[in-house]
């Protein structure tokens, strides 16, 4: 092919064709896969919520296994008895509350508006769980998760996830040894809503002190850890009016 690839006109035409071709491929792919991806994301939310209330398929010490995707919808409706939305003073029930994106709602609230705050009430072995979604920021990107409380405001379980924390350091917030530390901690300090701090100097690596509102931090992941503390605190503050009615 004897083509002068240095000509300006050629460069422009090449650029245009390239952009159109690449754009179409990506648009086509994205539309084609959208429904499947949405479904996966929906299942993931259900799995995470169930995980926080202790409905999972964990085997052994370090394992984090969710209810499999083919069973998750059924399991979700079995354990989650009620999904409610708190909006200002109003409380409404909504079967799709779990699809609410916390990021958007928190943005609205920060701007002074009234965001929709979803809350899930689960029941397992005759015991009630109140599951709160959380959203915050870690070192590199977003972190989020769910925290489940009983009616005495004792943590029954948590689930954390992240978009881009450092593998081996901040990314470890989604490992069992970290998440399990939260179980049994009280979020209250006396009558004050203290949240749970990811603390570097609590001298309690086995996490035997459940009254200190602290869990042992991850080495090398200070900012992610602080992000987790801040995220829990923010969520609990937002849900405080509801939580105080539980006791």
């Amino acid at each position: 092919m004897a083509m002068n690839t240095d000509k300006n006109s050629y460069t422009v035409i090449f650029a245009v064709i390239m952009v159109v071709v690449v754009g179409s491929i990506l648009a086509f792919l994205s539309t084609g896969l959208r429904s499947r991806i949405n479904e996966n994301e929906r299942f993931e939310k259900q799995q995470n919520i169930l995980y926080a209330m202790g409905v999972n398929e964990n085997e052994g010490d370090g394992d984090v296994s969710f209810i499999p995707t083919d069973k998750v919808e059924e399991t979700f409706s079995k354990y989650i008895k009620k999904q409610i939305i708190l909006e200002g003073d109003k409380t409404t029930e909504d079967q799709e509350a779990y699809l609410i994106e916390m990021k958007k709602e928190l943005d609205i609230i920060k701007k002074g508006g009234e965001g929709k705050l979803p809350l899930f009430i689960g029941e397992k072995d005759g015991k009630e769980f109140y599951i709160i979604p959380m959203y915050g920021k870690g070192l590199w990107d977003a972190i989020w998760g769910y925290i489940s409380l009983d009616k005495n405001l004792i943590v029954q379980g948590v689930y954390f996830d992240h978009k881009g924390e450092t593998p081996g350091l901040g990314a470890n917030i989604k490992l069992r040894f970290f998440m399990d530390d939260f179980k049994g901690e009280s979020i209250e300090d006396g009558a004050r809503l203290a949240g749970i701090e990811v603390a570097k100097g609590n001298n309690d690596p086995l996490n035997q002190d459940k009254e200190d509102n602290q869990v042992d931090a991850l080495a090398g992941a200070t900012i992610t850890g602080n992000g987790v503390s801040a995220m829990i605190k923010e969520a609990l503050t937002l849900y405080k009016p509801y939580l105080t009615t539980l006791k």
Binding site: T5, F14, A15, I25, L26, L29, L33
Partner: peptide
């Protein structure tokens, strides 16, 4: 066929496209 003036951009587009395709298919 790549014009030498914009070859770096073309390379960047190829990498980014490949990575996004893989990411979407995996998702």
């Amino acid at each position: 066929v790549i014009p030498s003036k914009i070859r770096i951009i073309v390379q960047l587009i190829v990498v980014a496209t490949l990575v996004i395709i893989v990411d979407q298919v995996l998702k």
